[in-house]
Amino acid sequence: MDVFMKGLSKAKEGVVAAAEKTKQGVAEAAGKTKEGVLYVGSKTKEGVVHGVATVAEKTKEQVTNVGGAVVTGVTAVAQKTVEGAGSIAAATGFVKKDQLGKNEEGAPQEGILEDMPVDPDNEAYEMPSEEGYQDYEPEA
């Protein structure tokens, strides 16, 4: 019985440690998101679009440190934060509304985080759909 109880105690310690790591990862992701939003706020009209992409990228980098179902929630929060940063930029006159959601080359930025393969159960990952990809044929 002692062996059984000791095993359960060790398992509990492992769960607590994993929860603490997840909590730490979420806190880091939130900190990076805040950094990115402050970065966007300090940019001029020309830099705002690039700044919004930076927020998304920093958040995406930190999301990889967070495991399990938390990833889905962090990704949703990050996307809403990026959308909010863009709205703030438009409201303050840093950028025109028609410039939001495009990178410096004018290509749409939507789907940055949505296409990231995420499995809350950590069982399997699927690649994003290939609808947006084109076949590449090298020139002879």
Rank of each mutant, 00 (worst) to 15 (best):
P108T: 15
Q134K: 13
E83R: 09
E20S: 02
V74P: 01
F94K: 06
K97R: 11
N65M: 07
F4P: 00
A11F: 03
A90C: 15
L100I: 07
G51A: 12
N122W: 06
V63F: 15
E83H: 11
V3A: 04
G84V: 15
Q109S: 05
E139M: 09
G132I: 14
T59L: 07
T59Q: 01
E57L: 09
G67H: 09
K60A: 04
V52M: 14
Q134Y: 09
V16F: 14
E139L: 03
A30E: 00
S129H: 07
E13T: 05
T33A: 09
Y133C: 07
P108M: 07
Q79L: 14
G86C: 11
D98G: 09
V66M: 10
T44Y: 15
A30H: 08
K21R: 10
E20H: 10
D2E: 01
E126T: 04
G31V: 03
E105M: 15
M5L: 00
V15I: 09
T44R: 02
E110G: 08
D2K: 03
V95R: 13
A140Q: 04
Y133E: 11
G51R: 06
A30Y: 13
V77S: 01
L38R: 15
G25P: 01
D115I: 08
T59P: 00
K10C: 01
E139G: 07
Y125L: 11
Q24F: 15
G41M: 12
Q79W: 05
K43L: 04
E46Y: 15
V26N: 00
A29V: 07
K43R: 14
P120G: 07
S129Y: 12
T54D: 01
E139C: 03
M1S: 00
P120I: 12
G47S: 07
S129W: 03
P128I: 06
G101P: 08
A107P: 06
E110F: 05
N122T: 05
G51K: 07
E46K: 10
Y136G: 03
K45R: 12
A89W: 13
A140H: 03
A140G: 12
I112L: 06
V55I: 15
G7A: 03
A89E: 02
A91S: 04
A30L: 15
E35L: 05
P108F: 10
E35I: 14
S87H: 13
V82K: 11
G25N: 03
F94V: 03
M1A: 00
P120Y: 08
Q134D: 05
T75P: 01
G84N: 10
A17Y: 14
V16I: 14
V52K: 01
I112S: 15
I88L: 05
T75Q: 10
V52C: 09
G132W: 12
A53R: 15
K97V: 13
M116F: 05
A11Y: 06
S9W: 12
A69S: 03
A27P: 00
T81V: 08
M116C: 05
D98S: 05
P117Q: 12
G73Y: 14
T75F: 12
E57S: 09
V26M: 14
A11V: 15
T81E: 01
E35M: 15
A91V: 13
V70E: 00
A90W: 12
P117E: 02
V71F: 06
G41Y: 12
S42V: 08
E139I: 06
E61H: 08
G86L: 07
T54Y: 13
Y125W: 08
I88G: 02
K80S: 05
D121K: 14
Q109R: 14
H50N: 09
E126L: 03
T44H: 02
E105Q: 11
N65A: 04
K102A: 04
E61D: 14
G41P: 01
D135Q: 07
A27N: 09
D98H: 02
P117T: 12
G7E: 11
V55A: 06
H50T: 14
E35V: 10
L8M: 04
E110S: 05
T72L: 11
E130V: 14
E13P: 01
Y39A: 02
A27M: 11
D115T: 09
Y125R: 13
T54W: 13
V70I: 09
G41E: 01
Y133D: 13
V66S: 01
K32M: 03
K34D: 00
E46F: 03
V71L: 11
K23R: 12
A78T: 08
G67P: 01
T92E: 02
A17V: 07
D115M: 11
A90D: 09
A78W: 13
K6Y: 05
D119I: 13
V63E: 00
D115E: 10
E110Y: 13
A18N: 00
A90T: 12
Y133M: 08
E110V: 12
E28H: 05
E28R: 12
G101V: 05
G84R: 15
L8N: 00
L8Q: 00
A85F: 06
A91W: 09
K58V: 11
H50F: 14
E131V: 13
M116G: 06
K80G: 03
T64N: 06
Q99F: 05
V37F: 09
T75K: 13
S42G: 07
G41Q: 07
A76S: 08
V40L: 07
Y136H: 08
T33S: 14
P128E: 08
M127L: 05
G101L: 10
Q24K: 15
N103L: 06
L8I: 02
P128Y: 04
G84A: 15
T22K: 00
E13F: 03
N122G: 03
V118E: 06
G93C: 10
K21T: 10
G25C: 12
A17W: 12
D115H: 09
F4G: 00
K96F: 13
V70S: 02
V77E: 01
K32W: 14
V40Q: 01
G106R: 06
N65H: 05
A90V: 15
G101D: 05
D98T: 10
S129N: 04
Q99M: 10
D135E: 07
S87V: 10
V74E: 01
T59A: 14
F4T: 00
M127G: 07
G25R: 13
V95N: 11
K6A: 05
E28V: 11
E61I: 08
E57G: 06
E61Y: 03
Q62R: 12
E126W: 03
T64F: 13
Q134W: 05
K45P: 03
P128H: 06
P138F: 07
D2T: 11
N65E: 07
A90G: 01
T64W: 09
V55E: 00
A124D: 13
G47H: 12
G73C: 11
V26C: 13
K6P: 00
K80H: 07
P117D: 08
V26Y: 13
K23W: 09
A85G: 05
P108S: 06
G73Q: 13
A124C: 09
A17Q: 10
K23S: 04
F94P: 03
M5E: 01
G68P: 04
G14C: 10
E83D: 09
V40M: 07
A140L: 09
D2G: 01
E83P: 02
F4S: 00
K21E: 01
V70Q: 01
K97T: 05
E131T: 11
G25H: 15
E35S: 08
N122L: 03
T92A: 13
A11M: 14
L8V: 04
P108Y: 06
N122I: 06
A29E: 00
M5A: 03
S9P: 00
L100G: 08
K34S: 02
E137Q: 04
G47C: 07
T44E: 00
S87N: 12
G51D: 01
K10S: 04
K6H: 04
G73N: 15
K43I: 15
V37K: 00
V77I: 12
T92V: 12
V63P: 00
K102W: 11
D115V: 12
L38C: 09
L113F: 10
A78D: 02
E130G: 11
G51N: 04
V77G: 04
E123A: 04
T92K: 04
K60L: 12
T44W: 15
T22A: 07
Y39H: 03
T59K: 01
E130I: 06
V26S: 01
D119V: 02
V40R: 01
G93A: 15
N103D: 12
P108I: 14
Q62S: 04
K97N: 12
T64V: 08
V37M: 09
E105Y: 15
N103H: 05
A19D: 00
G93K: 05
V48L: 11
K96P: 04
A19S: 02
